[in-house]
Amino acid sequence: MSYNVELPSEHSLKLLAPQKSKESVLLPMRELAAGKRALAEEKSKKKPRFLPAGQTTQMIVGASPEADGQILRLSQAMYRKFSLKRVYFSAYIPVVKHSLLPDKTAGLLREHRLYQADWLMRFYGFSAEEIAGEGENLPEEYDPKCAWALRHMELFPVEINRAPLEMLLRVPGIGTVGAYKIIKARKFAALGFGDLAKMRVVLKRAKHFITCGGKFYGAENETAVKTLLALEARGERYEQLSLFSEENALSIPSPSAAERGNGANERYSLLSTAANAESARTGQL
């Protein structure tokens, strides 16, 4: 069940969605969470099912000026207080021109980084304070886990055969499955670099942060590591297409533009007709 928080702060909510109030969203979420907790404590055999799939929420990212750090702190608080299943982030895409709304889209990369940070909070034991400062945005060129590891290089490299689970989860490139595999396997035999490769732990990034039986296979110094990881990120970079030219903001492409789109063109450019311009001004689709 989803009660959409819509915007990351009360101020933005009042500005952009004045018919919704903070209480109208948070109060039902609190009640549902309390109801679920009460039912969990009940010990009878024939319990009715109450909200079996859990609660979720969604917010729009980029329509208002809040930084990623604030968004992550809000998500963390909601996870803790309301036992949410998930928080969904939706990148803002401008459809209508308005003085209160930004002209440009927030970008899918920002949404992707927020989801990566969300995963870190839910599955890797990170807290929002560790991932980003209050007024900070998440870095573009590294994913949040890499960025954290590069900021805390004094903790690395970790010894695969001795490190606790919490530290293994913090190594970039070792996910939840990889960490559990390592924990299980190392009880029986000391793990070497080749063993990790056979177990299908992805070592491309992890090798800069781990030692196997004391041996290190990563780059020589910190700057080399930074360059290698940033280069990799460039390979995965999303190309942000622009659906809108400067003159108008209508979403329906005309047939000739679609034809031009067949083939090698990656950018749409919409014809600016009188009808489109009129719709953009009045906000009617």
Partner: peptide
């Protein structure tokens, strides 16, 4: 089944 570094188990 947890001896994941052993080739037979893999």
């Amino acid at each position: 089944r947890d001896m994941l570094s052993h080739p037979a188990v893999l």
